[in-house]
Write a protein that binds this DNA or RNA. Structure first.
Lengths: 198, 198
DNA sequence: GCCCCTAAAACAAACGTTCGTTATGATAAC
DNA sequence: GTTATCATAACGAACGTTTGTTTTAGGGGC
């Protein structure tokens, strides 16, 4: 009775492999992780992995594309939502931090390991990243258009600064910290929107 | 007459190897770069590299420790310098960006590839990174103590946001861009210190 | 009896590294 | 001005290991 569609916990061996790969790719990088590393962590012989996955790169493609999608899905709806650009940018920052907190290692893979995608999958991943960046660019330009954001801002530099701060969060953010992810997001939004000056 | 100590351009083969390794480690990561890749780029057979370097890891140790040192040397003097915390933090941000612009690929190695240092060299590298972070923490605390920085700031989050934005710069900063590195630094300082709100 | 999954073993290729030798100039002795 | 000496730096081949992946065979659930 308590199942039917349980919220998608690592049901099969396929998901177990994926979760292990996320952890190892995040910690040691794609090139620094061998299929034997993954097999050991899963508790299986290396060759047995190939009953569930097509290749090492297919594993990376899965992780990265699903990972980017989570960020886009969390942030994109707010681009055209109601409310002031300030409120929406703030909400986007919080949403981003929450996605990172949901699984920092996966975020590390998304932000750093996409370089190792092959020629077939790399262009699409790059385009998805651009799509994500455009969400922030769009809202910041809205804010500058309405005069709520400073007019002397270099919008490119502003976007890259905010995205840089956000993209770095998986490096230090712990889901088990004393601050809840939502609180961390609010604090970052306060710092990035208002600056540090009194 | 026009020599004596020419400014230290990649004199020997040793430096040529180092420069190539910086570029490849930055682009493909440490694990993703083989000694054969380096040898090919230098124009030499793989074994010949070992007449000049001790090992692949020794190459990484050189690059990372020298790289961190450049950041510390550029920023640390400003921690105890004269001037307001605002002016000093601004100068530190500009200095950081200028070090990145001097060689973005080296900065990528410093910020991402230190994980692959062995047990002998990793603790020291981590301590150096902490030392660098403490420079920023110190100045921000000075700014909050004098009341020039907002009192409702979470200093940990503020520092991590600023450092995150800075550490991400090698990902997009080009030394040949239309904005000079110094200008990019000033713009980032403006964004990070003052926020985006009007 | 079929089907999914695994173990076990093997594959070719690429890995970091070592080795003895050789080509190249410069320096010093005669 | 030739010759011997020496350091530099690269070669070419091989080392043992690890890489991603394939193949073959066997065991348990329906």
């Amino acid at each position: 009775m308590n199942e039917a569609k349980p919220v998608e916990v690592p049901s099969g061996p396929r998901d177990a492999i994926r979760d292990v790969a996320v952890r190892l790719f995040g910690k040691q990088g794609f090139s620094g992780t061998s299929m034997r590393d993954i097999a050991n962590a899963v508790g299986v012989l290396p060759g047995s992995l190939y009953a569930h996955i097509a290749s090492k790169e297919a594993l990376l493609v899965d992780i990265v594309s699903d990972g980017i999608h989570r960020f886009i899905a969390a942030v994109e709806p707010m681009v055209g939502a109601t409310g002031s650009p300030i409120e929406r940018l703030r909400a986007m920052i919080v949403a981003h931090v929450e996605v990172v907190a949901d699984n920092p290692e996966r975020s590390l893979v998304v932000f750093h390991q996409w370089r190792f995608l092959g020629p077939d999958n790399l262009p699409l991943a790059i385009e998805r990243r651009r799509e994500y960046e455009r969400c922030f660019i769009s809202v910041i330009e809205q804010g500058m258009a309405t005069g709520q954001f400073r007019a002397d801002l270099n919008r490119r530099i502003a976007v890259l600064s905010i995205l840089g701060a956000l993209n770095w969060t998986p490096e230090w953010l712990s889901p088990d910290g004393q601050l809840k992810p939502h609180e961390v997001g609010e604090l970052m939004a306060g710092t990035l929107l208002g600056g540090v000056l009194a």
